[in-house]
Design a binder for these strands. Structure first.
Length: 366
DNA sequence: AATGATACTCGGC
DNA sequence: TTACGGCCGAGTATCATT
């Protein structure tokens, strides 16, 4: 029986900053990404728990966080984000976990799964998790919460139950009682739409969902999604760990001034496209879908994308394509003015080898 | 009608 | 009073294919 860990770092960026500057240990820390427009224009990327106590949280405008800091008269540290540093810390933590795990799968910069199936039982697993927490503190100076379960679905939900610095072990025979009381939208893959449709069936919790017969779910959500819901309600999930490659690579930036003038935007898109393609080709890949991201002055995010029949490796091609997509978008929205623009590439495939699909068509019949 | 691919938006940190 | 980044994967809508 597999034993899967989900390791979730607590307030990761803020913890990284506390770790490298001891004078911040007892001081609330707010990690910010600045836009370059004015001194305090930006958003909060992460807030330490002692900063969250004052109502400051990720996604909040920096000025708002500053305003709170003034009101509460606390000595709160505002620090610009340094992602390369957090990425380094993340790698160190990954190495520590990898030293005792059969396999590690990074899920993001601050989350990873680990296969600990070699451990004899869940008591041993919980002990190992506590030891791992200490190892991580020692090596990286940050704390983590760890969920343990028979698969990734359960481990991920478990890691969230007790934060920060918690360990939640859910052995196989307690999975159902652990999941049953949870609202269905805590299941990975159940969004607002699915939750709404389930609510129409009188389903609010996982236990409710388990009461719905499989053919009924298939009938309402289709074979694939229906079966998937049926399995999740019973705590069945993947135990496969893989160091997954990213499915998309993008760059996004805030314009110096709000504009809809192509002459202002073109050079920005060109630069972003170059950076994206450098990252794509740096991995030895090519891309087959180009997307332009437009963030309007009222902070609405809009995207337009198109796919090529053959994979591409040219920055110029990406630039020309997103430029065209953006012109099209702006001509359809004559009143729209942009604050930020971005370029995304996706649909990756290996830089060499072509697909063989054309050879397999035409067989079978109808 | 069901399934899979593609386009687009949303949410989390 | 307002204030507002950058990046990713998940979720959903829509369309083509069968």
């Amino acid at each position: 029986m597999p034993i899967i860990f989900h390791v979730d770092m607590d307030a990761f960026f803020a913890s990284c900053e506390k770790a490298r500057r001891s004078e911040l240990v007892d001081r609330p820390v707010v990690v910010c990404v600045y836009s370059g427009r004015g001194k305090e224009s930006g958003a909060v990327s992460a807030a330490s728990y002692d900063a969250r106590d004052h109502g400051i949280h990720a996604g909040m405008p920096v000025r708002q966080a500053r305003s709170i800091a003034r009101e509460v008269e606390q000595d709160i540290a505002f620090i610009g984000a340094e992602k390369a540093f957090y990425s380094d810390v993340s790698h160190r933590i990954r190495d520590i976990i990898a030293a005792t795990a059969a396999e590690v799968e990074p899920a993001s910069v601050d989350e990873m799964y680990a296969d600990m199936s070699h451990l004899p039982d869940y008591d041993a697993a919980a002990d190992r998790a506590a030891a791992l927490q200490e190892d991580i503190v020692e090596a990286a100076g940050v704390t983590a919460s760890i969920g343990i379960g028979p698969n990734k679905l359960v481990a991920k939900i478990a890691s969230d139950r007790d934060k920060p610095e918690g360990v939640t072990a859910v052995p196989p025979d307690t999975v159902q009682e652990f999941l049953d009381p949870l609202p269905v939208d805590e299941l990975h893959g159940v969004g607002p739409k699915t939750a709404d449709m389930l609510a129409d069936l009188g389903v609010r919790t996982v236990e409710d969902l388990r009461g719905v017969r499989r053919p009924e779910l298939v009938d309402r959500f289709g074979e694939s999604n229906g079966v998937s819901l049926y399995r999740k309600a019973r705590g069945e999930g993947s135990t496969e760990l893989e160091d997954a490659d990213p499915e998309q690579l993008s760059r996004l930036t805030t314009l110096r001034d709000d504009t809809r003038d192509p002459d202002d935007i073109a050079p920005v898109l060109q630069e972003l496209a170059q950076q994206v393609v450098d990252r794509v080709t740096g991995r030895g890949w090519r891309y087959s879908t180009a997307t332009v991201i437009a963030v309007t002055t009222d902070l609405e995010r809009r995207t337009r994308s198109t796919s090529f029949t053959a994979p591409q490796d040219s920055a110029e091609r990406l630039y020309e394509t997103v430029q065209q997509l953006l012109q099209q978008f702006l001509s359809e929205h004559p009143e729209t003015v942009l604050r930020r623009v971005g370029v995304r590439a996706s649909g990756f495939e290996d830089g060499r080898q072509e697909t063989l699909e054309s050879f397999t068509g035409g067989t079978g019949g109808s």
